[in-house]
Design a protein around this nucleic acid. Structure first.
Length: 848
RNA sequence: GCCGGGGUGGCGGAACCGGUAUACGCAUCGGACUUAAAAUCCGAGGCCCUUAGGGCAUCUGGGUUCGAAUCCCAGCCCCGGCACCA
């Protein structure tokens, strides 16, 4: 009788004592860094979703190990951050107490789950030996000019009482607490990730990642190709400073220097557009209500209306805005005008909240004929809607495309394919739209009023948090010296114990209440100075943790050069898709920066990334509010880790996810029990050798399937193949031989490592199986029998199956097929017109 | 709205490059063992027609093909991401 708990505890102790799971970090010849996303240690304990992900990653690591790689599989804890702090607030226990006990609990559960972790190299982001280097990274970015403090409209969560990165705002709501996020103007630290937008995007072309994850990042970075255009302000133009010399008269001199350009642009409204070809149709402009030029362009008689509109929209949060979207557009005329540089016409300047301050330039040229939003706005406020782009086919032969009408009954005409041409666009009329757009930009560019430009949706990464539970940002403010970085030798800036760490609505961090913390002498002049009291974002902690793992233990450097060269970049990273645009983007960015600064040799941190699917329970999402939370502890206590692991991997395709049902566990449970019984019976029988050709063939086929499936993470079908093989060797009460089952034990080891170890040892193997066993090979020539069964179809319908020798000729197959009674019946009275024969696969007789 | 992924028995899910649809497992039913039950073992099963056999089945409707779950077109539904992004 197999006792999972006793056996599993025994092998876990063995692995620990022997250091089975600790590769030689300095000498490994075939290093393989197998990474999984470290968890944040919640008080609820290890979630089954975590374990699902870890088990899938662990199986891959064990598979590589059995194939001869030196696998390094570490784990750690993302223990700083809002998620941990919020939890501490909820249960009213100080995080300095709560977090260590949570971590201890996690470690106990992870050990019990049989994961191949190197427990000597764990990471805890709250450990000063770790966050000192998080602060160090901040300083490197600061020195490189990539960490900057700026006043900016930021997302403010009134419930978490902190700012959030754009990535943490989901549909206008806080990703943690679902509160409506407000916009506030605050001075914050930003990392200039936008400078790397293009490279982050380009590298997506070649890194080996799950396709969906790549696509999500592409969308998030959101590249738009187009142009910047400058619309001179009318009042300025009237004053004669810039003039309308660039106008449709085309009389530009082309000799204006850069300085002239700057002067012209200084008195203009800058817009970004992806459709410079439509500039002749720009009949008005719109500024975001908070645009700085609003005050400049607003006329005296419109000032009151403008102020009121600004007040009204400022009070409206993002969710409200979405509702007004359904009601239609709103806006107010400023009374000001600008000059359309293409037509030289005066166009009115409006403000409206459908233009967002934080995208592009916060201002647009409105082309109502060719933009749905502008169209809606123009109809509402009765602005002209002249079409300037039309399908080539709509222009009659011989007609002058400078004077073509296009019906816009159905709304804006937004098509932009190679079949569109420009109309009503002066000398550009008749040109294909794309080409025309480029020509227009070039023409206006001569006067400094246009230039090609690529814009990104990606924003700079705001890393300041007005919270307590994080690494203090290592900056000191001195009245005399200004912003002074903490000298590297003074790191870490320790997070002090603060009894009342509650955040408040002031926008000032809890550390600002700890005078003994923030009062500090300026490192440069020694005068009384003040520390930064914000802490950094959790995603900065997790942005580099994988770099630390191999170098855990070095306290004088963040990552050792030799270790890093040997183990990085990460060979395989398996994790959840929910981090496609957060952690995975930030860690790529930080790696790129560290590469550029000469600290690491690679620019992309992960060679391969695979996303895993989501686990649901009986058709419903797993959540505390639904009360359907699965506690791995209970299941492992009841069935053992091996059964639980195997079940998790069997319930659906790992990369897709699956449905957890208690009753389903019975399958893998019985499977492992039978495996145990059969292998023990084989050992008792003392039989060896591979004498049964059917079993031998099944064995080779199974090795092939399981090997391929593990490589591609198709764990569910790998388990199915092992089940199938077991059914074969023990069919009709048969007792298998040792040689029939030993390869099976090895292939089972990634799923059920404890039982595999036990069976390996009992069948004469030297422990640990993971050190002494080699992944079995298969022989292609032994995959097939000499005879094959092939279907005989008539007009594509199955009418018989026949057995023929492998490789039999069409004549042989056809002759045999025609002998079949059922085939003859169906052929009776009809004429054979065609025969399709695929050797060893099928025969199709086509009749009339 | 845009971008991705998906829809196969009672259920979870298989199916290489278009070639015997429903592997493997769960639940169910029948049998063996047992005083009985559990456990275990053996067996059955897509649906419909009385059987040999036949008809119909992979979201719906068309198409390509000797042959379609697989390829193409149109539509419906579900899931995930982005979203007044100029």
């Amino acid at each position: 009788m197999y006792d999972p708990t006793a056996t599993e505890t025994r092998w876990q102790a063995y692995w620990d004592e022997q250091g089975t799971n600790e590769p030689d970090l300095d000498g490994a010849e075939r290093p393989f860094f197998n990474l999984m996303m470290y968890p944040y240690p919640s008080a609820e304990g290890l979630h089954v979703g975590n374990l699902y992900a870890f088990t899938g990653a662990d199986i891959y690591g064990r598979f590589r190990r059995l194939n001869g790689d030196d696998v390094f599989e570490p784990i750690g804890y993302d223990a700083f951050g809002i998620h941990s702090e919020n939890h501490a607030l909820r249960v009213d226990i100080h995080p300095t107490e709560l977090i260590p006990s949570n971590i201890a609990n996690f470690e106990r559960m992870l050990r019990r789950a049989g994961l191949m972790y190197d427990w000597k190299h764990t990471v805890d982001t709250t450990d000063p030996d770790y966050y000192r280097w998080t602060q160090w990274i901040f300083l490197q970015l600061y020195k490189a000019g990539l960490a900057v403090k700026k006043e900016a409209p930021v997302n403010w969560c009134p419930s978490c009482q902190t700012v959030l990165a754009n990535e943490q705002v989901i549909a206008g709501l806080c990703e943690r607490c679902d509160s409506v996020v407000e916009q506030r103007n605050l001075s914050q630290w930003f990392f200039r990730i936008t400078r790397y937008a293009e490279r982050l995007l380009e590298n997506l072309e070649w890194i080996d990642w799950s396709q969906t994850t790549r696509t999500a990042q592409q969308n998030w970075i959101g590249r738009s190709e187009g142009a910047r255009l400058w619309f001179p302000l009318d009042s300025v133009a009237a004053a004669g400073a810039a003039g309308d010399s660039a106008g449709a008269s085309g009389g530009t001199t082309g000799t204006s220097g850069k300085a002239d350009h700057a002067a012209v642009r200084d008195k203009a409204i800058e817009v970004f557009t992806t459709r410079p070809d439509t500039v002749f149709g720009a009949t008005y402009m719109v500024l975001a209500p908070e645009h700085p030029l609003v005050d400049v362009v607003t006329s005296a008689d419109q000032r009151e209306a403008v102020e009121e509109y600004r007040r009204a929209t400022a009070a409206v949060d993002l969710v409200e805005r979405r509702k007004t979207e359904e009601k239609g557009k709103t806006g107010t005329f400023t009374g000001g005008h600008a000059i359309n540089p293409a037509t030289s016409e005066r166009v009115p300047i409006w403000i409206a909240d459908y233009v967002l301050m934080d995208y592009g330039t916060g201002a647009i040229m409105a082309v109502p004929a060719h933009d749905e939003r502008d169209f809606e706005f123009a109809e509402m406020f009765d602005l002209p809607i002249p079409p300037v782009v039309a399908p080539a086919t709509s222009v009659p032969d011989g007609a002058d495309p400078s004077d073509v009408a296009l019906s816009l009954d159905g709304g804006a005409y937004v098509e932009h394919t190679e079949d569109e041409i420009l109309i009503n666009s002066d000398r550009f009329s008749g040109m294909p739209a794309d080409e025309g757009g480029r020509a227009i930009v070039e023409w206006l560019g001569e006067a400094g009023l246009a230039e090609p430009h690529v814009d990104y949706r990606l924003r700079d990464w705001c890393i300041s948090r007005q919270r307590y539970w994080g690494p203090p940002i290592p900056i000191i403010y001195c009245d005399a010296c200004g912003v002074v970085p903490v000298p590297e030798e003074d790191l870490p800036v320790l997070l002090p114990y603060v009894e009342d760490f509650r955040p408040d609505a002031s926008g000032i961090a809890p550390l600002a209440r700890a005078e003994e913390f923030y009062r500090v002498a300026c490192p440069e002049c020694g005068a009384q100075a003040r520390r930064e009291t914000d802490v950094s974002d959790t995603f900065l902690d997790s942005g580099w943790y994988f770099l630390r793992y191999p170098s855990v233990g070095f306290d004088d450097r963040p990552f050792d050069a030799g270790r890093t060269a040997r183990w990085l970049p990460v060979d395989m990273y398996i994790g959840g898709e929910e981090h496609a645009v957060l952690h995975l983007l930030y860690s790529r960015f930080l790696t790129m920066v560290l590469h550029e600064l000469g600290y690491v040799e690679f620019e992309e941190p992960y060679r391969r990334f695979r996303k895993h699917g989501l686990l649901i329970k009986e058709g419903a999402k797993i959540s505390k509010s639904r009360g359907n939370v699965i506690l791995p502890d209970e299941y492992i206590a009841r069935y053992g880790a091996d059964v639980f692991r195997t079940y998790l991997m069997f319930l659906g395709p790992f990369q897709v996810g699956g449905d957890f049902r208690d009753v389903g566990i019975a399958g893998p449970e019985r499977f492992l029990k039978r495996t145990w019984d059969s292998v023990m019976a084989a050992i008792d029988s003392g039989r060896d050798g591979l004498v049964d050709p059917d079993v031998e063939r099944a064995l080779h086929a199974t090795i092939k399937t399981v090997t391929e499936d593990l490589e591609s993470l198709d764990y569910n079908t790998a388990v199915a193949a092992l089940m199938d093989y077991l059914n074969t060797v023990r069919a009709d009460g048969r007792v298998p031989s040792i040689d029939e089952v030993r390869p099976m034990v090895i292939m089972l080891a990634p799923f059920a490592p404890h039982m595999a170890e036990e069976l390996w040892e009992r069948s004469g193997g030297e422990p640990s199986l993971f050190d002494t066993a080699a992944w079995p090979d298969f022989d292609e020539s032994k995959l097939h029998t000499d005879e094959v069964e092939i279907p005989v179809q008539i007009n594509g319908k199955l009418r018989a199956t026949i057995r023929v020798a492998r490789g039999a000729s069409q004549d042989t197959v056809q002759a045999l097929a025609l002998e079949q009674e059922n085939v003859q019946r169906h052929l009776e009275g009809s004429e054979l017109r065609k025969v399709i024969h695929i050797p060893d696969r099928m025969l199709n007789l086509v009749v009339r």
